[in-house]
């Protein structure tokens, strides 16, 4: 039981980071970024590349990889999402699908599709840590939980207190009015994309260090969007409980079902949510009409 709880917490942390990425982008562009999973993969490969360039220097490699990911987010916004203004949301979502395809193709072209382990180059190890109650998790499992908690705390403070964060919320609600109030919303939205890519790639770096790195990791992203929707697409606060819920269902379905069922369980959560309360646990009902 303790093990199940610990696993749930770890999976939930991964989903929460990815889910935050979805919600940040959704609030900025009203677009569900279906390339979020591939941004996660990209983060892993950035870490792999920086770790190979600066072997044994995680202090250098980690921030550099994170910065590259955030930069990718900005580039995506400028190159792909900004020109989609005025197009139907559906078209913009499809652009993110194509972005995912492009990212995956680029990753295979550059890094081939071999399975990698960035940890080797970083010069770090990943020893198991026994917890209270007999549960055992790996060190990077703990790092994942810590990263998720830290990211959400920082994000909360940023959005609640800092003027830039308030402007980001304002622009997310009404871009035009924000612009008329002097807010350069293109800048703000680019920042949203940067934060989103950062969150995704953070998850990707930790996950790939913990488990393995391969181009098909992006599938994790597809499963995490269930989290974003269950929590409410426009609700950052909803991501955490939703991530816990979806992770719990998934862990339970591994325990009492089979791996195939656990793969599909996030989608089952999503379907149930769509039928019962389509705007999500903490989302606003009006969002249904906006898309």
């Amino acid at each position: 039981m303790a093990q199940a709880l610990a696993t749930t917490l770890v999976v939930a942390s991964l989903y929460a980071l990815l889910g935050a990425g979805y919600v940040l982008v959704y609030r900025a562009s009203r677009v569900l970024n279906l390339a979020q999973g591939d941004l996660l993969t990209l983060g892993g490969y950035f870490l792999f590349a920086t770790a190979a360039t600066f072997p044994g220097a995680p202090v250098l490699a980690l921030p550099l990889a994170a910065a590259l990911s955030a930069l990718t987010g900005v580039l995506v916004y400028v190159a792909l999402m900004r020109p989609m203004a005025g197009h139907p949301v559906f078209a913009a979502v499809l652009v993110t699908v194509t972005l995912g395809i492009l990212l995956r193709a680029a990753i295979v072209l550059v890094f081939t599709d071999r399975t990698r382990h960035p940890l080797q180059n970083l010069g770090l190890s990943n020893p198991p840590r026994p917890l209270a109650g007999g549960a055992v998790v790996s060190t990077f499992d703990l790092v994942m939980v810590g990263a998720a908690v830290a990211f959400f705390a920082a994000l909360f403070v940023f959005l609640k207190v800092s003027p830039l964060g308030i402007r980001m919320r304002a622009a997310g609600e009404r871009a035009l009015l924000a612009s008329q109030r002097g807010i350069n919303f293109h800048g703000v939205f680019a920042l949203s994309w940067a934060l989103s890519a950062f969150a995704g790639s953070l998850a990707g770096m930790i996950y790939s260090s913990n488990v393995r790195l391969e181009p098909s990791l992006g599938i994790l992203g597809l499963r995490a969007f269930a989290v974003a929707l269950v929590g409410g697409l426009d609700s950052l606060g909803g991501v955490v409980p939703a991530a816990l819920l979806v992770a719990a269902v998934e862990v339970a379905s591994v325990r009492w079902g089979n791996p195939l069922l656990s793969d599909v369980s996030p989608f089952l959560c999503l379907l149930v949510m769509l039928l019962v309360r389509p705007w999500g646990l903490f989302g606003t009902k009006e969002e249904l009409e906006r898309v």
């Binding site: 949301v89 979502v93 599909v264 989608f267 999503l270 379907l271 769509l274 389509p278």
Partner: peptide, 19 residues
């Protein structure tokens, strides 16, 4: 549901069928 939400529903359904 409309738009994005509907698309997500169909995507989820896709995964369920495949399951």
């Amino acid at each position: 549901l409309k738009g994005l939400y509907l698309a997500l529903g169909t995507l989820a359904m896709h995964h369920v069928v495949l399951y």
